[in-house]
Design a protein around this nucleic acid. Structure first.
Length: 179
DNA sequence: AGATTGATCCAT
DNA sequence: TGGATCAATCTG
């Protein structure tokens, strides 16, 4: 029986959470169906001065969720077309989140945030909800990942962020992620 | 390589 | 109130 990750899991430092999430099972109940997938790629957005993070501009109606409690779901629309799924990490008042960027589900390699949210039926209704069964979106513990399987790379699409663009805060599984 | 799309933020 | 910006994806 798979075990649901405790909220405590997301209290850890964001970079650690981003790595730990690899190999875990993302579960979604939607329309009476249960969808599951293995997380293969994540990105970390850490702290108030991370220029690549929405939170670098301070608290706004959109970003305040990142300043809130860990284990919250942060969903936002990007380029007017695609939703991105993030999990808030760290302590209340410290803006940080992990972007879920790659998932293996139903034999599909969902290598992009927009593909994941489409396949999992994730939309803004889930924004600011807690990661748990009640919200119909949660993460289960599954096989431990050998740290040697984890690769890191610069984050995607943040060239504008200066020195922050160079941080290797994207993590993915060597075998499974095929980008 | 280009088009698409709309919420959000900041400067007026 | 308006314009610039954006953590993406698809098509050809």
């Amino acid at each position: 029986m798979a075990k649901i990750l405790a909220i405590k899991f997301f209290e850890e430092p964001t970079l650690k959470v981003a790595k730990s999430l690899l190999g875990k099972t993302l579960a979604r109940k939607s329309g009476g169906k249960l969808i599951r997938g293995i997380i293969t790629e994540t990105e970390a957005y850490v702290g108030p001065s991370d220029k690549a993070s929405h939170a670098s501009r301070g608290i706004t109606p959109r970003t305040k969720i990142m300043f809130g409690d860990c284990g919250m779901i942060y969903v936002y629309l990007i380029y007017g077309m695609y939703y991105c799924l993030n999990i808030v990490t760290g302590k209340r008042g410290y803006p940080a989140a992990v972007l879920i960027r790659g998932v293996l589900s139903d034999g599909l390699n969902l290598n992009g945030p927009g593909k994941i949210t489409r396949h999992f039926n994730i939309n803004k209704n889930l924004n600011s909800k807690k990661l748990c069964k009640n919200s119909c979106l949660w993460i289960e513990n599954s096989a431990e990942i050998d740290p040697k399987e984890i690769k890191s790379a610069p984050r995607i699409g943040v060239n504008y962020a200066g020195i922050w663009a160079k941080k290797a805060w994207r993590f993915y599984l060597k075998q499974k992620a095929a980008i």
